[in-house]
């Protein structure tokens, strides 16, 4: 009898949207995205070391290294560690963006569109929390979807979000991100993302995000998360005027 009650309770908790109230469903969808984000960003203030590899026709075409410093309230600082781009920095504060090219020795305020230019979409490297930029809703719960996964549709709630919509697929119960279709404002499929998970320091984390280009089908970009550890960088590094200080130095 107790076993039956337990199973019914478990079923109710894992299938919350059999007859969902709209607000509750949206809230739950958002909480699922938040849970999925924790596989990429393991603490509120962290440094993430990434290697971005771009492949063309399955041949490695380019490799870039970045250190990404993240603070709460959508603050991130991306510092290029690749020798040919050493000292290049991108500062993202909410929906505001600044770029520092080492030769210019001055930060330049850039538009969200300029952020998409350059070597790789910096937004892909610097944004590890989709729940802050997007509102989510179910397109299908795992018990009803053909894939057996929770299927969510994320819509940008901020103008600085890199993509207009994201169709995200999460594993049931664990909310591990599996894949996502990333759409531009024009409705075009920009990229399809696939996630690889490994266990580090006793917890499951996203170790790699593979982005297949939706426009240039023969291209793919792999973002490998080499290291992900809590780190609190002094707030002055997130002041645009401070970007030009010590342009080529690593932050100690």
């Amino acid at each position: 009898m107790y076993k039956l009650i337990f199973l019914l309770t478990l079923l109710a908790s894992t299938v919350p949207h059999a007859n969902p109230d709209t607000n509750a469903a949206a809230e739950n969808a958002d909480s699922l995205v938040k849970a999925a984000d924790e596989y990429r960003q393991t603490a509120d203030e962290i440094i993430v070391s990434t290697v971005v590899k771009r492949y063309k026709h399955n041949t490695l075409n380019r490799e870039r290294r970045y250190d990404v410093y993240i603070k709460p309230d959508r603050k991130s600082l991306v510092i290029s560690k690749t020798p040919s781009e050493k000292g290049q920095k991108v500062l993202m504060l909410d929906d505001q963006f600044w770029l520092l090219l080492p030769k210019t020795k001055r930060p330049i305020r850039i538009t969200p569109m300029q952020k998409l230019m350059g070597e790789a979409s910096i937004g892909d490297v610097a944004t590890l929390k989709w729940h802050e930029d997007y509102t989510a809703e179910y397109t299908s719960t795992y018990d009803k979807s053909k894939s057996g996964n929770n299927e969510l549709l994320l819509k940008a709630k901020r103008k600085g979000a890199t993509y207009s919509e994201i169709a995200l697929s999460l594993a049931p119960k664990t909310n591990v991100p599996l894949y996502a279709a990333l759409f531009l404002a024009s409705g075009k499929l920009a990229k399809t993302a696939y996630f690889e998970i490994t266990t580090k320091n006793g917890r499951e984390q996203v170790s790699k995000m593979i982005l297949k280009d939706g426009i240039n089908k023969n291209q793919r970009t792999e973002i490998e998360y080499i290291e992900n550890k809590p780190y609190s960088l002094h707030y002055k590094y997130f002041n645009p005027a401070y970007l030009a200080r010590n342009p080529s130095l690593a932050i100690q």
């Binding site: 000292g87 010590n246 080529s248 130095l249 690593a250 932050i251 100690q252």
Partner: peptide
Amino acid sequence: LTGGIQTSSTTYY
């Protein structure tokens, strides 16, 4: 040649 030494409070560049 670009470089320097950086501590928590002092930078030589």
